[in-house]
Computed example of a mutant assay.
Amino acid sequence: MKNVDYIIVGDGYASLFFAHQLIKNNKSFVVFSEEKKSASRVSAGIINPVVLKKFTTFWKAQEQIDFLKQTLNEITKYTGQNYLINAPIHRIFHNENEQQLWLKKSSNEDLVHFLDKKIVHLNSVKNDFNSGKVNQSARLDVNGFFTGLFDFLKNCQQIIREKFIYSDINIANHTYQNFSYKNIIFCEGMGVKNNPFFSDIPVVPNKGHHIKIELSQPLPENITIKKKHFLFPLTKKKYFYGGTYDREQLHHEIDSSAVEQLISGLKEFYPHDFSIEEVNFGFRPTVKDRRPIIGRHSEHRNMYVFNGLGARGILNGCYFSKSLYDFIENAVPLHQEVCIERFNSGLS
Rank of each mutant, 00 (worst) to 15 (best):
D289V: 13
G317A: 07
V30I: 14
N173M: 08
N135T: 08
T57N: 13
F281W: 06
V51C: 13
F281E: 01
L72P: 06
R284D: 03
L103W: 08
F186H: 10
K227Q: 11
D66L: 11
E278F: 09
N95G: 03
K238R: 15
I65G: 05
V259M: 01
V279F: 04
N48L: 05
H121P: 10
T57W: 10
V279R: 14
G10I: 04
V305N: 08
N170K: 14
F129D: 10
Q100R: 06
G189P: 08
F32W: 12
G310E: 02
T79L: 03
A14D: 12
I165P: 13
N127C: 08
E98R: 02
D246E: 01
F186A: 07
H209M: 01
V30G: 10
L234W: 00
D141L: 00
N280I: 11
C156Q: 15
F17M: 09
I276Q: 00
F269T: 01
F17H: 14
Q177C: 09
V42I: 06
V9F: 13
S106V: 10
F320E: 07
E268I: 04
A61F: 06
N344T: 12
L140E: 04
F93I: 01
I213H: 08
K60M: 11
N183E: 09
S321I: 04
T235P: 04
S106Y: 01
I119P: 05
W102T: 03
H335T: 05
Q100F: 12
A331Q: 15
N280G: 08
I47L: 07
Q64R: 07
H94F: 10
S40K: 10
K24W: 05
A311G: 10
F327P: 13
H90P: 01
E299R: 15
Y166T: 10
R301Y: 13
E98C: 04
H174Y: 11
F145M: 04
K237T: 14
E248N: 14
K228F: 11
R284I: 00
H300Q: 15
L334S: 02
K37H: 13
R312F: 07
I92Q: 12
H121I: 08
N130V: 06
S216W: 11
I92L: 07
Q21C: 11
S257F: 13
A19R: 05
D141F: 02
S323I: 11
D66S: 06
F58N: 03
N143M: 14
R139V: 06
